[in-house]
Simulated scan of single mutants.
Amino acid sequence: MTSVTTLFAPVEADLSVLTENLKKLVGARHPILYAAAEHLFGAGGKRVRPAIVLLISRATMLDQDITPRHRRLAEITEMIHTASLVHDDVVDESEIRRGVATVHSRFGNRIAVLAGDFLFAQSSWYLANLDNLEVVKLLSEVIMDMAEGEIQQGLNRFDTSLSIEAYLEKSYYKTASLIANSAKAAGCLSDVSPEVADNLYCYGRHLGLAFQIVDDIFDFTGSTEALGKPAGSDLKSGNLTAPVLFALEEKPYLEVLIEREFTQDGDLEEAIALIMEGKGIERSRELASHHAQLAVQQLASLPTSECHQALIDMAEYVLSRLY
């Protein structure tokens, strides 16, 4: 199984600079926000999203070094992702994230909402300063998509009629849009052709969907320690993901438990048992694998390089988290 460390080896030095820069970008003008940011950026995240931006930057700038704008794009990508996590944790009332206390559980909801807003605002400001209209449009769309995904998720709580298509659309908005649009933006900064830029977008889209489906499987198969949050927490809050939607097709009683929102003792445990018994997990794995394969196909237009190979291996890594 490929580890993240091996996978990111071609951009390891770039990622070290990125972590230091993120703390500087937030600035020390607001001590409480700086404390929140330091807490966030120090919290053992894998830095998958900026690593993808940096790998694409290097894979598309083979004979030259990447530019300061490529680096700044990677930083903006991580800021947007982190801002969305801060807000998600407030909405979901999560006490822990990546094994550490969430911003709102440590500093309170008011500071958490402001910290998320501040990071979104900072990322928008740095984005505008890239002076590239195409990239500004791509990343601005991400911020809209994330809000759309969160709204869709909120409106569809405990809705057993939700289709797999609607689930994938919501997963695109919440997770894949950032990876897809930042992948394309990295290509734009390298002046790739429109066709290659579209391929990079599709790579990010399919990789992001595979990533989200795997995360949703993990909600049932992972330990609290590995997840950084209690297992089954998505289901408990009424967020119906691929394993649940597939299980509903073969376990009718699951619908009863979900529609009464697990109000009776043992409901949640019974629902999890029904999902684990059926083919929901297996079918979700197949769906994740399908999207990972589609992602790899999009990379055919890039020249062979160490970073190109790392992008291919990234799809394998996303799936390997399941085993």
Score class of each variant (00 low, 15 high):
6 T>M: 15
12 E>S: 13
19 T>V: 09
23 K>T: 07
26 V>G: 03
29 R>Q: 11
31 P>S: 15
38 E>W: 12
38 E>S: 09
38 E>H: 13
39 H>W: 10
41 F>R: 04
41 F>Y: 14
42 G>S: 12
45 G>Y: 02
45 G>T: 01
51 A>V: 02
53 V>H: 08
54 L>D: 00
54 L>G: 01
55 L>V: 00
66 I>S: 01
66 I>R: 01
70 H>M: 04
71 R>L: 14
72 R>S: 09
75 E>L: 00
76 I>T: 05
84 S>M: 14
85 L>Y: 04
87 H>I: 10
89 D>F: 09
90 V>S: 01
94 S>G: 15
95 E>D: 14
100 V>C: 10
102 T>Y: 10
105 S>A: 15
105 S>L: 15
107 F>S: 02
109 N>Y: 10
119 L>D: 03
127 L>H: 07
131 D>F: 15
132 N>A: 12
135 V>R: 00
135 V>F: 08
138 L>R: 05
143 I>S: 10
151 I>G: 00
152 Q>V: 15
163 S>A: 06
166 A>D: 09
166 A>P: 03
170 K>R: 13
170 K>P: 02
171 S>T: 06
172 Y>S: 04
172 Y>N: 05
173 Y>A: 06
174 K>I: 07
177 S>F: 04
181 N>M: 07
182 S>R: 00
185 A>E: 04
188 C>P: 01
193 S>L: 08
203 Y>W: 15
205 R>W: 09
207 L>Q: 08
207 L>Y: 11
210 A>D: 07
211 F>R: 05
212 Q>F: 07
213 I>K: 03
215 D>E: 07
219 D>F: 08
228 G>L: 07
231 A>L: 13
237 S>C: 08
239 N>R: 06
244 V>Y: 00
257 L>Q: 03
264 Q>Y: 13
265 D>G: 14
273 A>K: 08
279 K>M: 04
284 S>G: 01
285 R>C: 06
289 S>R: 12
294 L>R: 09
296 V>C: 12
298 Q>K: 09
304 T>L: 11
308 H>K: 09
308 H>I: 02
310 A>F: 05
311 L>F: 13
319 L>V: 13
321 R>H: 11
